[in-house]
Amino acid sequence: MHIPDGYLGPQTYVVLDAAIVPVWAIAAAKVKSTLKARQVPLMALGAAFSFVIMMFNVPVIGGSTGHAVGATLIAILLGPWAAVLSVSIALVVQALLFGDGGITAIGANCFNMAVVMPFVGYYVYRLIAGNTDGLRRRVISSGIAAYVSIVVAAIFAGVEFGLQPLLAHTAAGQPLYAPYPLSVAVPAMAVEHLLFFGWVEALATMGVVAALGRSDSALLEMKPAARPLRWLWAAFAGLVLLTPIGVLAPGTAWGEWGAEEMKARLGFVPEGLAKVGGLWTAAIPDYAPAFVKNPLLGYLVAAIVGSVIVVGVTWGVAALVAKRENDDESSAAAA
């Protein structure tokens, strides 16, 4: 996910380079207030660890191996703000000492891997793990958090790539930087992380959390959150309210064509698609509930319904895991 120089135009990298500076300043202030003078060695070691963890070959399936970024793991161990600094320093060292990742793209790389990943990972972990002391729930939570965080970071990187043809092109429309539009760049980045790198990140994070939980569980103590969890809910609600913006985007996402659109593009509908395409009818097709006539309102209603279902299912699974752990502990205590 390290973006080299040349793929992002100045309109993107200048904005992200400028945006990352205040984030570093806030992170430094937060870390200083919690770690005091101890911050320098801890940040340096956190950065060194972040750098070295990317070198471990993690076996996934068959003979394939991959490298983890480790940002969620560091956020769980040191807290999200400390992770911002540690992963950023590791990325800067990678760019300046090894030439890995661009110099002008430092802001973009830090935004994706040192801001998005730790915060998404940390809050997903907090949300699922709650205040449990049970190792199994923490391990599962860390895996889900790592998986979600790297996929979200990859989507951000995909958006940055996909915006380039819109932001910078010649008079004839030829892209000057990353050449693929959003409809290609976002699915390409998301799919490779959903199918492979997300699992590498999840397996590595779960393995380390499990090993630390068995040998040195004090390291897994909940670190002070950047903000109380209610801010996460506020941000989440804000995102839900912004979903009608999606209606403004014309066309269908690349690769998500239905039979009619497929026929318009290819001139025919593949036999398999025609056979199975109509087997399932969604409850809210095209994110447009039948009982809402206004498309913007319909999109919003679909977002609220979807969010409630996802949060409800996650909550239910977490409650079941917690209950099972409590039962196990009660049985162990009784024995």
Binding site: L45, G46, A48, F49, V52, I53, F56, N57, V58, P59, L73, L77, L203, A204, M206, G207, V208, A210, A211, L212, S215, D216, L219
Partner: peptide, 12 residues
Amino acid sequence: VTGRMAFVVRKS
């Protein structure tokens, strides 16, 4: 591998 990563965390 993940056990060794955990070792590197503790050492760090």
